[in-house]
Amino acid sequence: MKQFVTRRIGYSLLSLLLLSLTIFLFVRVTGDPAALLVEPGASEQDIAAIHQKFGLDQPLWVQYGLFMANLLRGDFGQSFYYQTPVLELYIDRLPNSLILGLVAMSFSLLVGIPSGILAAVRVGRFWDNAGKLFTLLGLSLPSFFVGLVLILVFSVYLGWLPSSGAGGFLHILMPAFALGWYFAAAHMRLTRSSMLEVLGSEYVKLARLKGLPPSMVIAKHAFKNALIPVLTLAGINLVLMINVAVVVETVFAWPGIGRLLYEGISFRDFPVVQGVVIMGGTMIVAVNLLVDVVYAVIDPRIRLEK
């Protein structure tokens, strides 16, 4: 077990190292941030001064070395645009993203799981077809469109909800719905396929043969096992909701991490983009590591794999 955990931690660290290198190079491929920090038409001297100020005149390997050395000390650098430490910006925005992510996730699970179960139990019938339509819409309607329609209906026409920003319970309803909508469809689809697989298994057939009531078979025997892959996916999705809800947070002016990432990309603020991606990547790697370890504890075959 110890060897397994050590190996998994090693893979995780390697993944993070590769992620840091990829994002470091990727943001620099997109162009020169100095061009966005000066007025159009600024002189070469002004641009050169910006390069010098932010160390962008150094060779790439020197910049990467400094970036990694600072990262190991927990320093994500200073935002070019806001002139504020990236970690400070991230921590300021984190509570808003956590709240939005948790509410959106709750919505997506509350809608996705029951509808997935219903579709699997009534496979090929009305509820299954309705579920398929819901999945199709959920996965294909872009969240910016859903967001703008929600604003138009509930803010402008009905006047029930605030159009944007954070502040109270009413502020979170539309962004959480727009964000959770896609994930509800994804969770519904996975729950349906997982339930169908479990419902066709031998032990469920046996439970039915023993004369257990259908509700008991579904709730006690099938549902529990079908839930495992859904919750695993939900864990990863929650990290995504917290870190990369770029479109929803931008449309609703929600002051979260997704919007910070949008600002970082828009202003070519390398430290901000790097910081948000690395924090998000670290969370995903940590969740995956945790899942791997839990699986290994439950199933000895996994930890004995080479």
């Binding site: 604003i151 449309v251 609703f252 002016a253």
Partner: peptide, 11 residues
């Protein structure tokens, strides 16, 4: 306040 989206600003 920063409201990045033009349609949201108008709303």
């Amino acid at each position: 306040r920063v409201i990045p989206d033009e349609s949201t600003r108008l709303a």
